[in-house]
């Protein structure tokens, strides 16, 4: 038997949404803004990311890892958005800049150039490459934020570098 008069939504849940939005919203928004570089897009992305987070809140890790978890969801969402926008127009490979630089390692220290290259990279390696080359995380941090093994991170970074080398070689 079930209560026929069960309330579908209550004030406690409403308060919970408000509290969690206040707690995680600033980090999500700052992260989305950094990736998307557009406040209107970041605002939309923040809502989408928060709704994903809210729906999976029971999977949230302990307080030490919450920011990394939020970062992962926001990063994946925004990179997919960027990829979707790229698909709708010409893929903009920064080949010329890589060739002019002549040195791949120093070229990838340019965050803007690295970001453009990552945006055009295959889905599988994109998040790893972004966190490492654009956000400046070391392999351990990347593994922690994305919930991957360090070995997987290394493999994906190698794949990304191989792609960049091919572009630099023309």
């Amino acid at each position: 038997m079930t209560d026929a008069l069960e309330k579908p939504w209550d004030e406690a849940a409403d308060d919970r949404v408000s509290r969690l939005y206040s707690a995680h919203g600033p980090a999500i928004y700052a992260r989305c803004q950094r990736l998307l570089r557009d406040r209107a897009l970041a605002e939309d992305a923040t809502q989408e990311v928060f709704i994903r987070i809210y729906r999976h809140i029971e999977k949230a890790p302990g307080s030490d890892e919450v920011l990394a978890w939020v970062y992962r969801i926001a990063t994946n969402y925004c990179l997919n958005e960027i990829r979707g926008r790229k698909r709708r127009r010409e893929v903009d490979w920064p080949t010329a800049e890589l060739q002019v630089s002549g040195n791949l390692e120093s070229a990838l220290l340019d965050r803007d150039l690295a970001a453009r290259l990552v945006e055009a990279a295959p889905t599988r390696v994109r998040a790893v490459a972004w966190l490492h080359f654009v956000d400046g995380m070391d392999q351990t941090e990347v593994a922690r934020v994305l919930g991957l093994s360090r070995r997987t991170v290394v493999h994906r970074m190698r794949a990304f570098i191989e792609l960049a080398r091919k572009l630099a070689a023309g």
Binding site: L67, L108, F133, G136, M137, D138
Partner: peptide, 14 residues
């Protein structure tokens, strides 16, 4: 290969 940078990561800064 990794970026040889003295900067803390975006994650640390955030």
């Amino acid at each position: 290969m990794s970026p040889k940078t003295p900067h803390p990561s975006s994650f640390e800064i955030d």
